[in-house]
Design a protein around this nucleic acid. Sequence first.
DNA 1: TGGCTATTTGGCATTATAGCCAATTACTTG
DNA 2: CAAGTAATTGGCTATAATGCCAAATAGCCA
Lengths: 117, 117
Amino acid sequence: MSNVSMKFGDVAERYDARARVLKALAHPTRLFIVDRLSEREHCVGELTEAIGADTSTVSKHLSVLKSAGIVSDEKRGLTVNYSLRVPCVLNFFGCVEAVLQANADEQMRALRCGTGE
Amino acid sequence: MSNVSMKFGDVAERYDARARVLKALAHPTRLFIVDRLSEREHCVGELTEAIGADTSTVSKHLSVLKSAGIVSDEKRGLTVNYSLRVPCVLNFFGCVEAVLQANADEQMRALRCGTGE
DNA sequence: TGGCTATTTGGCATTATAGCCAATTACTTG
DNA sequence: CAAGTAATTGGCTATAATGCCAAATAGCCA
């Protein structure tokens, strides 16, 4: 566990892999998709309708999430149905909201007490 | 709370804000930085040494994290010391590892049982 | 003040993402 | 098999992110 002078080069692959997962989540549309899938599975058409973009765009977002292992797909009849494969990603929202709240608080404080930055 | 046919357009700003936070995290070097800062605060020079990139590069990564509200900085003497502002981001690592593990399992299963994809 | 160290900023080339349209594939049903 | 619906893929342009170097800033100490 000795972290003394730990070098990035020695562990870069691990952080690369982690970053790939987070990068897949780091897009407004894809976060919206994850949120929808947390309720129930959806086919591409349903998501496309809710998002209001081209079907191909939504399909590509889904493929990004799938490649990262965040969602899984199952073809049934005419539709392809996507579902959340690793529900723990939903925990992210709580922390992200906490960050946003902290930012909002800070901003408020800066305004009240004279210019911050 | 009715999610019936929720439209992305109506809530896009919220997802934009969330995505900005996740995007700040979605880079191997920045994840490494967050991990280092989870132990204790570090100045830019220490992080630069561990990362092995140009100082300016590391400084810019820190500025990305700071803009997102994930880290805070404090200048003391010659150095600028960064620390984790919202420690709950560390919880992300656990879930991300779970995703990676699930991916690895899947891959293993595919290899054993004949080609998956 | 002048020099020194630590950090940030500006600028630029390289690469990666996003999103649209058009074309293609996959499946179902008449 | 033909036609129709659902989804994916290829291609392209526009925009954003990375990372280096060089230059600018900021604080400390002779």
